[in-house]
Design a protein around this nucleic acid. Structure first.
Length: 489
RNA sequence: GCGGCAAUAGCUCAUCUGGUAGAGCACCAGUUUCCCAAACUGGAGGUGGCGGGUUCGAGCCCCGUUUGCCGCUCCA
């Protein structure tokens, strides 16, 4: 860390004080790991979202956007592997405080027995475990652990808690009539947005006459019932993802994976954030669907953490959906394969995914922008808090400040306001000293302030003041709009 | 999930060993002010996170709980 002082607590306080982020339902003591975006935060978040959306859809060939529902058919999550892979029963050792997946604990025991030559026992235990797991019989599984005196590797004791299910997906009742017996009307709140893209692969490909390689982008909320959710908005239970699934010809995944790795990092750097704050982290242990994966990590005030993932998902998802839905997830490729001289023909496309957390990007941008400056001189102590937000992301682009609220200055200011407000977000303020107003705008990250004074009445010029340098210059009123527009586009 | 620390006005913090809750800034209404915060007058704002307990009396002591930060743990 370059900064010796931890700016994180100050940043969190700043977010609340200036209307960026509030704890959810705060008057009721809040809700753990849920946050609301305030009047400034929602603008900044929207600007980040729009910036990503424009970059991915408008500025890339062959990428279109969709907006899928949060509710999806329950089979989606069977096909994706979320139900089978992420509903594992867990058990804690009370002495070591270590938590185990029950199946891992028992399998570990079986391996030990096998190594010790007790082949029969090992087989018997595993058989028993599989039967109990299939029935979700937690009492039986606990008994199996107790009966075999399976010990914790760390504490060496058999002092276990009851077996508990940690379900990372939120569920709710679908339809107004509660489930009765056999009819299960449980639906999940999506734990990732990606599946909304996969299930629409055929719809988009056919209705948009999309030709491989092409991408589908989406921004939306996702929900995960995190066991430990912390570090402000870094890990929330309700969060927003910006994802793009890029469909490609099998065999080309390596080059496209590298392409998107580079392309996505370029997007981050274009915001003016220095490259040494970023690094790639290649996954060694790959998820069940991936043949290559890496994270783009950013040096947050609490260390390097993942902000975006680039995954080579193979044809896992589409194949799974084909199997569960019985719909052919095929693409017919008319391009000629030079090695055979014939078209590539039918295949299930491979997928490269780029997935970035919008809330994490928000925190990244804020972390980078937030600065506590000491402007003191020997005569006078002085300081300011400034958000050096990229101009295109700033919630307010231009503050329009009459130097006094008399002598017709507010009227001129109002005219400037009317001329600009349709093009970008402006803020008018006539209260308090000019210095105080500048500092308030610094704290909100407003890149430009223009001040109307008596000279304005004579020659139609104003003072423009720049946030980062605090320098001022005299410009004609007619140039204001161009200067701001140029910087925010 | 375990451990540590914390919670008093919008913000930052005081209130000495338990004895009527205070300041600065911010805010609101005015005054003043011609270019970088903290000028003047007046005003509003707190059941001290929430719930119990001990005590004649609790912001302060005890228990519980909620939320946050930090260290472990976990993270498709």
């Amino acid at each position: 860390m370059t900064n010796t002082k931890n700016i994180f607590p100050g940043l969190i306080a700043h977010c609340k004080e200036y209307g960026f982020i509030f704890p959810s339902s705060e008057i009721y003591e809040g809700l753990q790991a849920v946050y609301d975006y305030g009047q400034m935060g929602s603008e900044l978040k929207k600007n980040i979202r729009d910036h990503w959306w424009k970059n991915m859809t408008q500025l890339h060939d062959n990428i279109v956007g969709i907006d899928a529902a949060i509710f999806m058919h329950p089979t989606t999550w069977k096909a994706s592997g979320h139900i089978d892979n992420f509903n594992d029963p867990m058990i804690d050792n009370k002495d070591s405080k270590k938590r185990y997946r029950v199946d891992h604990l028992i399998e570990g025991f079986a391996d030990e027995q096998l190594a010790a030559g007790h082949e029969e026992l090992a087989k018997e235990v595993l058989k028993c475990m599989d039967a109990l797991l299939a029935k979700d019989d937690f009492t039986g599984l606990k008994k199996l652990i107790d009966d075999n005196k399976i010990k914790c590797a760390i504490s060496g004791t058999c002092n276990w808690t009851d077996i508990r299910q940690f379900n990372l997906m939120f569920s709710t009742e679908f339809g107004s009539i509660a489930a009765t017996g056999e009819t299960d009307n449980k639906v999940y709140l999506r734990p990732e947005t990606a599946q909304g893209i996969f299930v629409n692969f055929l719809n988009v490909q056919k209705s948009g006459r999309m030709k491989i390689p092409f991408g589908i982008a989406q921004v939306g909320k996702a929900f995960r019932n995190e066991i430990v959710a912390r570090q402000f908005i870094f890990r929330m239970r309700e969060f927003e993802q910006m994802e793009m699934q890029f469909f490609i010809r099998p065999g080309t995944q390596k080059e496209w994976y590298e392409y998107w790795k580079a392309e996505r990092l370029k997007w981050h750097l274009e915001l003016g954030i220095p490259g040494n704050k970023y690094r790639y982290h290649d996954h060694v242990k790959l998820a069940h669907y991936a043949d290559a994966a890496c994270d783009i990590e950013y040096e947050f005030p609490f260390g390097f953490k993942e902000v975006e993932g680039i995954h080579s998902r193979t044809d896992f998802d589409l194949t799974q959906h084909q199997e569960y839905s019985k719909k052919k997830m095929q693409y017919f490729d008319n391009d000629i394969d030079v090695s055979t001289g014939k078209p590539f023909g039918n295949y299930i496309p491979y997928v490269i995914e780029t997935s970035i957390g919008l809330d994490r990007m928000f925190l990244l941008v804020m972390s980078h922008a937030y600065e506590e400056q000491d402007l003191g001189t020997p005569d006078k102590p002085d300081s300011r808090v400034v958000l050096k937000l990229p101009a295109k992301l700033a919630p307010i682009k231009l503050a329009i400040l009459p130097l006094t609220k008399k002598d017709g200055l507010p009227e001129i200011a109002t005219k400037i306001m009317d001329a600009c407000r349709a093009d970008f977000r402006c803020f008018y303020e006539e209260k308090d000293s000019i210095g105080k107003r500048y500092r308030r705008m610094d704290a909100l990250g407003t890149p430009f302030c223009v001040t109307i004074d008596h000279q304005t009445k004579e020659d139609d010029t104003v003072t423009i003041r720049y946030r980062d340098t605090m320098l001022q210059e005299r410009i004609p009123i007619t140039k204001i709009r161009d200067i701001v527009t140029k910087e925010i586009s």
